[in-house]
Design a protein around this nucleic acid. Structure first.
Lengths: 155, 155
DNA sequence: TTGCTCCTCACGTCACGTGAGGTGGC
DNA sequence: TTGCTCCTCACGTCACGTGAGGTGGC
């Protein structure tokens, strides 16, 4: 052990709430609130009550923020959209297989619903992209007008 | 008068709060709240207290929504950004001229601050555009994975 | 008079922020 | 023991939503 690392993590890659907060730019309060409403549950707890998060939770945090900030979804809407993610959908397909529902009909339904939801989301993202581009053009024109006014005063 | 227009507007192009709400997708409550915090004041009032909005107010509503929804600004931040708009900045330059401050130094300061603020805004817009594109790509990949799973089950 | 829209309180809600007071491991 | 981070209440805040009760013009 050449470097100064002496603290040992109980489980590898497991993060405490403060570490998740720092690496995502959120506050611990936000993460606790998301848990309160069932949006993001930590993978485990210590006996003391301390929350423990896995790396996959970090990825989920990123997708929640995207839906919230980039598309303006409420947390209820965010949860609905996350239910259509491929990770979740494919997990559900596999767990239904384990639970003894081998009907290909049900599996196809889940996957097709996921694909449909994704297409709707892609549509909204493209709308938002178009709105931002239009707004950026307006602002570029505004800056140009002010620069022109500056030139005018200069003479 | 060939068409069915019989109602006459007191002042041409002037809108009541309900009409503004409908054409912008907001609620009257939202418009009153924005007035409460000094973000959007109607151009006038009737003796009865009824609010009257001009077409220019409609344009301002659009820009407020863009800053709020597309960039996630708080209403305090929105107001600060709107103060750097060319319409407002150029108006201020002119009114300072009327009020007897003919110093070209002051005019240049106002315009240069406006241009700088606009450039910062354009930067944020480009960042947001990049984030949305990345998110869209992730989701497109997710849809592709689910489509692949569908194909798998089909055989 | 009946509708429709407007008005002003004023309390409710969503997504957290912000202390208050206390516990657990180096 | 001192710091640091964690915990659970619990009240505050921002940006409205949602009635409650009343007015003004066709």
């Amino acid at each position: 052990v050449a470097d100064g690392a002496t603290t040992v993590e109980v489980e590898a890659g497991v993060l405490r709430i403060g570490e998740v907060a720092r690496s995502t730019g959120l506050t611990p309060r936000t993460l606790r609130y998301w848990e309160e409403i069932g949006l993001l549950r930590p993978t485990g707890y210590r006996k003391s009550g301390e929350r423990l998060y896995a790396p996959s939770d970090l990825a989920r945090v990123g997708r929640i923020r995207d839906l919230q900030e980039l598309l303006g979804f409420s947390l209820t809407e965010v949860r609905a959209v996350l239910d259509t993610e491929d990770v979740d959908v494919l997990d559900r397909v596999r767990s239904e297989l384990r639970d003894g529902d081998p009907s290909p009909r049900r599996r196809r339904e889940l996957l097709e619903a996921g694909v449909t939801a994704n297409d709707a989301l892609l549509g909204r993202l493209d709308e938002t992209l178009a709105r931002i581009r239009a707004f950026r053009d307006e602002r570029a024109a505004s800056a140009a007008r002010m620069r022109a006014a500056l030139e005018e005063f200069r003479e």
